[in-house]
Simulated assay, not measured.
Amino acid sequence: MFQKLSIIAGLALMPASAVLADDVKLPSTIAVTAADVGGTSYNQAIAIGKALQDAYGVSLRVVGTGNPQAKVAPVREGRMPFSIAGSDVFFAFEGVDDYASPDWGPQDLRAVSLVGGDNCLTYIVAGDAGIETMADFKGKRIPWVVGSSPLQANAKAMLAFGGLTIDDVTLVEMPSYGAAIDAMINGQVDGVTTVSTGGLVEKAVAGPRGLKYIPYPHDDAEGWARMREVNPHFAKRVATQAAGGLKEPLECIGVPYPDVITYSEDDDLVYNFTRALIDQVDVYSKADPSTAGFAADKQMFEWTVPYHEASIKAYREAGVWTDELDAHNDALLARAAVLADAWATTEDIRGDADFQAKWMKIRAEALQAAGMPAYFE
């Protein structure tokens, strides 16, 4: 079951007349987590917040965080209703990597918005690093963001595309994604995994080393197979948007970003927040074009995390949710139930030193018994 939201200061509903706009009803203040100040999801949240303020009189309080679990934890604990997170929510939903710990396990979270778009996930590399393809990373320096299993997994997956592993590169530990971007600008590392748009990437474009975007050719079947062995949620995308511009469309990686998630049982709040994101997209995308992917018809509905039922209602009303999507979402809900049942059997071993290995075995066996792929074995 979803965790019930705590009643916190600032989230009491205002009188309906104060926040009515096209029948959307929202609290006077909504708190969300996002990336570091200046990061893509932080900037997008600021643009969205301005639109919500103008349309509904709502204050969107954006809390910037330095690592993925710090984004999810306040939402899991009921201190905030939403997180504007990244692909880490896939790992959280599955209960793997940093979430394969007694304090976490598979998370019963739900998607509000899985943002599509014309940008992509790729490696940006310094213009003077001598890197044109992923195979060229051999012997180069890459940032290793401490505590960020998604960023670490992204690096491993992209290296795998080029036939490399982390043993083929020099890992430079970094405290956050923002620090990793600064490290590339300052010459401490040679490249960073990132979305191709956003304020920090713009910062790198303007830096003294310049940057290039690494392609992931869609006809390289072996490269894609190696990459998906590490990150099965990676999809093919052709990007036309990138900081500094692209000379031609870039074949690269598509994942929903950002991923707005919740644990809330407050259907009215989730429905109205989803409606607001849909209804105001033409407004906030003028302030930040990278937010255009929040539109109802750009959602990555067939991804690996289930949508909240109240959000589905909003997308159905927008005319973009189908019966086929019901089947996909139901399959993900069934997977969540298998994961939850498997997790419930671990109570007696959560203090064991080898807990992670034991959990991953239990998890894989439960999924396989249910006829579902285990992904991480």
Rank of each mutant, 00 (worst) to 15 (best):
A357F: 11
A314V: 03
I253K: 05
V255H: 02
P373F: 08
A73Q: 14
P143W: 05
D182V: 12
T322P: 00
G198S: 03
K140M: 05
L246S: 02
V230H: 07
I261Y: 05
Y177R: 02
G57S: 09
S290K: 11
G210A: 11
D323S: 13
A206V: 05
A129M: 01
F2S: 14
F355K: 07
I181K: 10
W104C: 08
G66D: 09
G223V: 02
A292L: 14
Y213D: 06
T240P: 02
A242H: 05
L26R: 09
V72R: 01
K236A: 00
R209E: 10
M14E: 15
P175M: 03
L11T: 13
E324L: 10
V172N: 00
C252N: 08
G64E: 06
E309C: 03
L367M: 09
F91M: 14
A292R: 15
L114K: 07
G66F: 08
T65I: 03
A357K: 14
T304V: 12
V62R: 03
F273T: 01
D167E: 04
I166Y: 02
P175V: 02
L60Q: 09
G66L: 11
V72S: 03
A160C: 04
I8A: 11
I253N: 01
I48K: 10
V283K: 14
A18Y: 13
G39Q: 12
A336W: 10
G117H: 01
G10V: 08
G319Y: 01
V75H: 03
R350A: 05
D297P: 07
E251I: 01
R237C: 07
A204V: 11
K212R: 15
M372R: 10
E77T: 06
L109N: 01
T193E: 12
L52E: 08
P258W: 07
E229N: 13
G210I: 09
S113F: 00
A318N: 04
G223M: 01
E377K: 15
K313Q: 15
D348R: 14
A334W: 09
K4E: 15
S149T: 08
Q280K: 12
E309F: 04
A179R: 04
T304H: 14
I349T: 11
T33Y: 01
G105A: 10
L60C: 10
P249H: 03
P289A: 10
D182C: 10
D326A: 07
Y216S: 05
S41P: 06
C120W: 00
A334N: 12
N272A: 04
R350M: 13
V305E: 05
